[in-house]
Nucleic acid binder design. Structure first.
Lengths: 224, 224
DNA sequence: TAGCTTTCGTGATAGCTTCTAACTGGAACA
DNA sequence: TGTTCCAGTTAGAAGCTATCACGAAAGCTA
């Protein structure tokens, strides 16, 4: 039996484990009380040690939250990539997104929720966001060549730096943006509970919006 | 010159003025640092009095925030109503919504941002939400009678308690929901800064989404 | 006008938070 | 077997929410 000889020192392994344990408790707190209620002190007590001990592992509360945001982004990108493939369409991606969001709403809001005015997301999250956008563009069906370019598409033709390394035409960029904003619109309101008073099934609204997005690709009229 | 004889006592008037002043400082704090950073202590100091004094005017921090949420809802409803009228279409409403949102992003997020798991919005906000939804339904163009009913519309036909006092058909309800979720999707991501990296103009995306919503009403194909 | 009552603002205090500083004990390493 | 490094401790500063008891001021009423 080959015990995997790691290149890390015992101290490093211990450190990594404690850091992971801290994050796990942090996620539990966030899921039940939201990110604003996250308390380093409470985490320390749950782990059976005194408050200041955690500062050996995270510089401060912000650094921990930043890492949680990074992990959330990473997790979303993984979920999207797991659903992506050579023949995937937007529908598969959409349902992967929805399942990921419903799986832990507060994790979703950590990325797409209320921004803190002063706070800036770490740089590597933009790389992950790019990765997600690329998967999205890949899944977009090829645009119809005969459709007239809208003002937005003309604008995107000249402002496509965010998709510079993707060959998709402006019509596809616009489709990807609509996919993103429309599904986020439904998901965000659903997760925030804005539909609770009304008795309809948010899943059907999500599906209908998705249908519209897919229908606009093929030939038929699309609206209803 | 008739000095308006008010029915309120001096004490009540003073109280109302201080409460308003507190709220004003609260809005400033929220605009610059977000709602989670709102500090009663800091407000008291800004007003030149000691911390506990504020508890004469608001039971606690939550009650102040609740009132701010109520005011935000009220303000949104007023903005929508001001834009509404006998002949208004969805476009006018959409731009009123967008202007209101851009005017104070944190106020928008106070309503539509990350929900606090434990917190429940006050009951009267649902009444205001209904008012907004009614204005929205009123502005929706009459649905085409020949369009086939989608699964969502069939579902809405049976779950329309939230629009019980409005004669609009299911197709219109679906249109209103799409209007809400799509525009919120664009606005929310724009205000949260998720478009900042990409260089395109969010206003054009908003306009394009609005065009799609309006086009689906009239006859022509709609997509592009 | 005089006195009573209500209410406003204060300082003190408890308990929570983040975060720093100094110290101790033990594990890893040479 | 030392020596070094680091984890975790307690103490403490500064901030927060929130409660309490007190004094003072303002309004209401006789």
């Amino acid at each position: 039996m080959a015990t995997t000889t790691s290149t890390t020192t015992p101290r490093e392994r211990y450190r990594a484990q404690i850091r992971a344990e801290i994050k796990q408790h942090a996620w539990e707190q966030i899921a039940t009380a939201g990110a604003s209620a996250l308390s380093l002190n409470a985490i320390a007590k749950q782990m059976g040690m005194s408050g200041p001990a955690l500062y050996r592992y995270y510089l401060n509360r912000d650094e921990l939250i930043t890492e949680l945001i990074r992990d959330a982004y990473r997790s979303l990108a993984d979920a999207i990539r797991a659903a992506s493939g050579p023949g995937t369409d937007l529908g598969v991606l959409a349902h992967a997104l929805r399942r990921w969001a419903l799986d832990d709403p507060q994790r979703y809001f950590l990325i797409y929720g209320t921004p803190i005015p002063g706070y800036h997301a770490p740089d590597d999250t933009t790389a992950i966001a790019d990765e997600i956008m690329t998967a999205l563009l890949d899944a977009c069906p090829p645009a119809l060549p005969d459709a007239p370019a809208s003002p937005l598409e003309a604008h995107l033709e000249e402002h496509r730096a965010w998709a510079a390394d993707h060959p998709a035409p402006a019509a596809t960029l616009r489709r990807a943006l609509s996919f993103w904003t429309r599904l986020h619109g439904v998901l965000s309101l659903e997760l925030a509970g804005h539909f609770t008073g009304m008795e309809f099934d948010a899943a059907l609204l999500f599906a209908a919006e998705l249908d519209d997005l897919l229908a606009d690709a093929g030939g038929p009229p699309g609206p209803r």
